[in-house]
């Protein structure tokens, strides 16, 4: 060592670096990006075909629908609630939308051109309206009948599944799809499909409202301390109604996304998706106790979920392991939250 001055400055630098590292490590999105890079590296080294545009497309196509559910779920979770009905709403909105296009507009899978496009726009409105309706029903059960969100949304989940089976006889309803238009639009937005970009746009808007506007602030405030929110003059019931309606509406949008992907409204097309959405939210760093969560975290959480899903198929891991890996991710995310909390206290 040349002189003591240098040693001191080296010491301070290393302390600063350590502090910075600590700060970065306790930042959920840094961790998530790190996990993402690690996953891509591992999957890519085992199966080089994983590092391809086709894989990215596969991952994003799945992400596009579930991220809509996960974004709605993020708001609900931040407000201190949970919405188990979103998966069932995907099926119900797709089925009712397809049923409307086929039986009211009299369009079938052979419809093309502007007729099909118009039909799909109507279908989109119907789909979102169905989702919002279920969301409003959730809000009524929670606000008026004072049923806890878990039970309220569990019962609407069951009802939505039941109705979609009744309407469809349990079978997919094939409606118009207008693949010419879709592939023409996809060609313009290459390499991303327009539906994925649509999802990205929607979640960007929701993200701005969550993190920059009064709507988002009240969502955090209610989840953080309902009593304080009420005392500050916030109409908690009115706000929660908006939150659940938004979650339902986004699920309806996801219903249309899946409809377009399958070319049919299928009652089982959202089966289990509420759990994928909740997993994305938790991996993204939101707390199921309310008050904590970032939309960016959820977006990355969903991306990680589907990277794992595609990756495991690509490297040929037995399908049963997928659930185990996702479970480990969730456990790690929750543990990371605990660590951050104890860091903060110290």
């Amino acid at each position: 060592m040349a002189n003591s001055k240098q040693a001191t400055s080296a010491q301070t630098t290393s302390v600063a670096v350590a502090d910075r590292l600590k700060g970065m490590l306790s930042n959920q999105s840094t961790i998530l990006v790190g996990v993402m890079v690690l996953l891509v590296a591992v999957f890519g080294s085992i199966e080089p075909k994983f590092l391809s545009a086709a894989t990215m497309n596969n991952v994003l196509t799945d992400w596009g629908s579930v991220v809509l559910l996960a974004v709605g779920q993020t708001l609900v979770v931040i407000s201190g609630g949970i919405d188990l009905s979103v998966g069932a709403v995907v099926g119900l909105s797709g089925v009712i939308s397809a049923w409307t296009m086929v039986n009211v507009l009299h369009l079938d899978s052979t419809a093309t051109g502007s007729k099909a496009t118009g039909g799909l726009l109507v279908g989109l409105l119907v789909s979102v309206a169905v989702g919002v309706s279920v969301g409003l029903l959730n809000a009524v059960l929670i606000n008026k009948l004072k049923i806890v969100p878990f039970i309220a949304t569990l019962s609407t989940m069951g009802a939505a599944l039941g109705f979609s089976v009744i309407i469809s006889s349990g079978m997919p309803i094939q409606g118009p799809a207008n693949y010419e238009l879709i592939s023409a639009m996809d060609a313009k937005t290459n390499p991303f499909s327009w539906a994925i970009l649509g999802s990205a746009l929607v979640i960007t808007i929701v993200g701005l409202f969550l993190h920059k506007s009064r709507f988002g602030l009240y969502t955090y405030a209610i989840g953080s301390n309902t009593f304080a929110a009420r005392a500050a003059g916030i109409s908690v019931e009115k706000h929660l109604t908006k939150v659940y309606a938004l979650s339902g509406g986004l699920a309806g949008l996801a219903g249309m996304y899946v409809y377009l992907r399958l070319g049919a409204g299928s009652p089982s097309s959202g089966t289990g998706r509420e759990l994928d959405a909740i997993a994305a939210v938790v991996i993204g760093g939101a707390s199921l106790m309310g008050g904590i969560g970032r939309l960016w975290g959820t977006v990355l959480g969903a991306l990680i979920l589907f990277t794992v899903q595609s990756g495991l198929i690509m490297i040929g891991v037995a399908p049963d392991w997928k659930k185990v890996v996702v479970a480990i991710l969730i456990a790690a995310a929750v543990a990371a939250q605990g660590l951050q909390k104890s860091n903060r206290r110290s």
């Binding site: 955090y220 405030a221 989840g223 301390n225 304080a228 929110a229 500050a232 916030i234």
Partner: peptide, 19 residues
Amino acid sequence: DSGLAPHLTVSQNVFLGRE
């Protein structure tokens, strides 16, 4: 014991309801 929302910042709490 219940005046503030712990996850919000100081200023968010001060202005809560009157943003």
